[in-house]
Design a protein around this nucleic acid. Structure first.
Lengths: 113, 113
DNA sequence: ATGTTAATTAACACAAGCGTTAATTACAAA
DNA sequence: TTTGTAATTAACGCTTGTGTTAATTAACAT
């Protein structure tokens, strides 16, 4: 089975909290690898690899400027995730899961008082 | 870093095309493991494990009935993905990526004729 | 030239993911 | 009770992911 399709790469890239944190930071504006690495309790090479994963998934871009690599967010894969998720909107709007039925029941009880 | 948070589990579960296919099939209605496994060129135990991954991520539920396990979609994690993605809507609505700038340029050229 | 800074690559260790076949559990039906 | 069906677990192998430290590349600055 093909596990190298773009959507799989995107979901896979987003499956690590450090990479989502990097993305969140970049949403506020592009910056360099060292700045991105600073808040993490992790070595620089580790962060560098996370960035590479994001780049290979097309979620970010790196442009060289002297010895710096400025990273910026690339929106397309996020849109793909959004549209994939939209496909399930009918389900999450109509169908209540177990927890929700439980919350509904609790709310009803509160209303009864 | 905590890699067992719910969102990571969800993205991780969605990162495999077989699991997304299983989810798509279940969106049409709950069914059993064997039925889910049928379209795949993969052994039953393999599919069983994919189902377990989806279940541990909270994306599906299994209810036992005799020797059958009926699987159904659970919407909550999908909503979480949607709302995580929404956070980046401003970016993907305003920011054009490289490919898009390229398409824009092409369109402009066409208009010029 | 030499040293400093930014970032990556190399080499390694260890855990997790994904697939297989064979064995096992749980239930139904004859 | 035996047989068949649904599904999981066991045991294994292989690949990928994630982190480390040490070494290396690339560019700037003195």
């Amino acid at each position: 089975m093909d596990r190298t399709d773009p959507l799989s790469a995107t979901f896979s890239a987003l499956a690590h909290p450090a990479r989502r944190a990097i993305l969140a930071r970049l949403a506020e504006g592009g910056t360099t690898v060292n700045v991105l690495a600073e808040p993490f309790d992790m070595s620089l090479p580790a962060v560098s690899r996370h960035i590479k994963v994001l780049e290979r998934a097309g979620l970010i871009q790196q442009e060289k400027n002297a010895q710096y690599r400025r990273c910026t967010v690339n929106a397309a894969p996020l849109r793909a995730v959004a549209s994939w998720t939209e496909q399930y909107r009918p389900i999450w709007e109509t169908r209540l899961d177990a927890m929700e039925r439980c919350l509904m029941a609790l709310t009803e009880n509160l209303d009864d008082r």
